[in-house]
Design a protein around this nucleic acid. Sequence first.
DNA 1: TGATAAACGGAGGCATCCTCCGTATAAATA
DNA 2: TATTTATACGGAGGATGCCTCCGTTTATCA
Lengths: 192, 192
Amino acid sequence: MGSKSEKASRRPRADSIRNRERLLEAATQIFSAGGPQASLEAVAREAGVGIGTLYRHFPTREALFEAVYRHEVDLLGDLAEQLAQETDTVEALRKWLQANVRLVATKKGMIEALQLVAHGSSDLKAYSFERMTGAIGLLLDRAVAAGEIRSDISPEDLLRTLVGIFYSQGTVDWQPTALRLVDVFVDGLRKR
Amino acid sequence: MGSKSEKASRRPRADSIRNRERLLEAATQIFSAGGPQASLEAVAREAGVGIGTLYRHFPTREALFEAVYRHEVDLLGDLAEQLAQETDTVEALRKWLQANVRLVATKKGMIEALQLVAHGSSDLKAYSFERMTGAIGLLLDRAVAAGEIRSDISPEDLLRTLVGIFYSQGTVDWQPTALRLVDVFVDGLRKR
DNA sequence: TGATAAACGGAGGCATCCTCCGTATAAATA
DNA sequence: TATTTATACGGAGGATGCCTCCGTTTATCA
């Protein structure tokens, strides 16, 4: 076969990798502050690269947005794995749920973003659903196995509840309320 | 007390009234197709007026959007009053709920719009909440008074359920599912 | 039938979107 | 190390949208 057509593609360039990371970081920052329709030129500026570079790495706004969102979901997944080391299974679950509230609270644009995800790319939807229910399942199973909480609640139920808590709020100063609701819910999960 | 300061303002100009109506109609159309961030210049074009005229009547995008949304809510309120004439009280309620589903299904942008309302102007929120619960209450009370359905469901409960049905859907071809859910719910309301 | 208050239209200044292509540079090769 | 070349970079530029401002038009009123 030809020696050209299947050349074992070069190693990706260092600057390319660096710029991609910078863009992702900048986008997280800018989207957090301004919501998912913030200016892409602002993202490029923040990252210190040209607008053309942004578009090469992320051809559409959605592509960039997806990358950012996936990263956040991955962080939550990793956090769950960390928390699964703790001995107090119920506390671990509570902490993870609270981390979710704090994440959304810190990032103004996140609620709009969640809505966008809910009605957008079903690839991303499937991925984040799986990753999130996986994280929840991990913590939930441990607590159930330890005999600490009731066993008739599925990870999906919990995820939906969480989303419900986010959705019903979203105005100023909702974080305390949301944290309280999480507490009530976790307490409610306990075996009496 | 001056004779000038309180002059009995002229009759509004005919063209002004006409243009306002045209704009509202055009905006309903354009927002339905493109969601709440559709181009305002497109609205003006569709209405056949200059962009300046649009901005005079509706100084901000939100103002225009509010006017459109209020109009939709009013239509639903009026529909409830009509349906309150029907003899079959449960069917009347079912029809009204189905009309809601159809309205949202027809107007692509409506789901985004609802979310915008949910986190936006609390004037509009209060108005639409009142108008909607009023409409539901009208139909619900009749059915309860007729002894057709259980009496422990409030208009607010029903409204939240409706919004829940809208929120959980929103992708392609969700209308049949939503209609089915409405049916199930109405049947569930019946006294056994 | 004027006079005039009110409404109209759209040019213009600014921001953002996205594409295109000449220039720069990291990796491969000799 | 020097040269080649695939790859990535930056930003100008055309298109579109936002909103304001103001000269022109027109409906109402006397």
